[in-house]
């Protein structure tokens, strides 16, 4: 999660340049240009979203792998039997399952696990070219990802 501040700064710079283009297109009442700038904004938002999402995803994978190693090393079989099903060298579990290893799926107050899975689904939608959103407010999402990261437990 260490690159998020730098990512936000670069995102802000490019997004502001696109905001200026959008304002010019609006002032000129140029419908085709307005549409082109809207597409550029959407692509820019999606690109940065995928970049920041990758930071949280990597953190979840890292902590999940660590948790599996630590729990599998227990001498007591009662403690490690469920964890033995996971191979830390080869975490084949789908992302949703890895997220549930480090975020409490039943914590409805924070809803962190569900929010994480929703973001993952959104990333997959972008990757497959299917998104209905006009844009993504990247700084707001970064704030949310920090909150989720604060709830990850090994």
């Amino acid at each position: 999660m260490k690159h998020l501040a730098a990512i936000t700064a670069v995102y802000s710079e490019i997004a502001t340049a696109l905001d200026a283009q959008a304002a010019q297109a609006r002032d000129a009442a140029d419908a085709a240009l307005i549409e082109r700038v809207a597409q550029k904004r959407q692509i820019n938002d999606s690109t940065y979203f995928i970049l920041i999402w990758g930071q949280l995803e990597a953190e979840i994978n890292r902590v999940a792998e660590w948790a599996v190693r630590a729990r599998r090393s227990s001498i007591r079989w009662e403690d490690r039997r469920a964890w033995d099903a996971h191979d830390p060298e080869n975490m084949w579990a789908k992302f949703e399952d890895r997220a549930a290893l480090v975020l409490d799926r039943l914590n409805v107050d924070s809803d962190a696990c569900r929010r994480t899975i929703r973001y993952d689904g959104w990333r997959n939608g972008i990757a497959h070219g299917a998104t209905l959103a006009t844009g993504i407010d990247v700084p707001t999402v970064i704030g949310d990802l920090y909150q989720i990261a604060g709830e990850i437990r090994a």
């Binding site: 304002a23 006009t134 844009g135 407010d137 949310d144």
Partner: peptide, 29 residues
């Protein structure tokens, strides 16, 4: 200053208004 709606369906917020104030840009969310 000029305020213009910039989008409703934006992930993370419930709508954005773009504010131009001279050469400066602001986002109202």
């Amino acid at each position: 200053a000029a305020f213009a709606p910039g989008g409703l369906w934006i992930i993370g917020v419930n709508g954005r208004i773009d504010l131009s104030a001279g050469q400066n840009r602001f986002v109202i969310l």
